[in-house]
Amino acid sequence: MRTRLAAALLLATLATPPAQAQVRSVELYAPRPFGYVIGDAIALTVEIALDPPFVLDAASLPRPRALDYWLDLREARLTDHGVSAGTHRYTLDLVYQTLYAPLEPKRLAIPGLALAATDGGRRVAIDVPAWSFLSSPLREIVSTGAGAPMALRPDIEPRPIATAGALRGLVASTLAALAALALLAWRMGWGPFGRRQRRPFAGASRTVRAALHASSSSAYRAALLALHRAFDATAGKRVLAEDLPAFFEAHPAFRATETEVCRLFDASRRAFFGEDAAGAQGELPAPDLVALARRLRAIERGTA
């Protein structure tokens, strides 16, 4: 629906070669030239091609303002496409708004623009042609319809603020928080996740820490026993010192703690079968036991 109106200007360009040789072409692209009513916005596009080193003088561009009592220039936006194939191209987008209230269809003209190009010293005028369109009335001249002749269109009623967006955001962020909390609980073995069969060392680590608050030999034994139960649960059968190589074969992740685990089994042999709790605590002191329980828990969780 765009009309090309450059012919007249191109003719003028050819007629006066010395003055405008540096302006290759000025083309005006316009929408339909009819059917505009009061308040309509009209977008025109001007394509300008210059010979380098000439550039468009930014000071000559129109500024958005009221051009006439019925015509406003709302927007003037220049796009510089740079030099290609020896031509410097620009696109000037113009948005006008007509505020003319015609009684019958009336031709109105948007005036042309006088732009300028410069190469530093010389100045060349660029004339953008005027453009005209048909403006149409909205109402008949004498009202023939029913009802009052000057009945206004109704007011806009106040509307409540839309809360659906905030509600959706609240639901989504709450769900995200719950999901993150569940993931964290699963990671850390909290709550229902801590009692799972697959995480025996998580429970054992808690028991060890609780038991070693009381520094008696029975508490130390309880701690050892908890770790043994965790090894049993992990292996799915009873694990004795002789079974350790097979255990590490089946659960290679725990191999990193092999030395400490061997010390643990030595200590527990002393504590339970040698009745030598003090010697056992010398072999593997309580803080080391807690550290080992933590490491085993971390390996089990996969974060070691």
Binding site: G39, D68, R74, Q97
Partner: peptide, 27 residues
């Protein structure tokens, strides 16, 4: 209309107002 050029009720009522008191170029 500057903010919303497609607002038909404002166009219609502006048309009514324009016919009550016309715009004058010098005014």
């Amino acid at each position: 209309l500057t903010l919303d050029p497609g607002f038909w009720d404002a166009k219609y009522n502006l048309d009514i107002a324009m016919r009550l008191v016309r715009d004058f170029p010098q005014l």
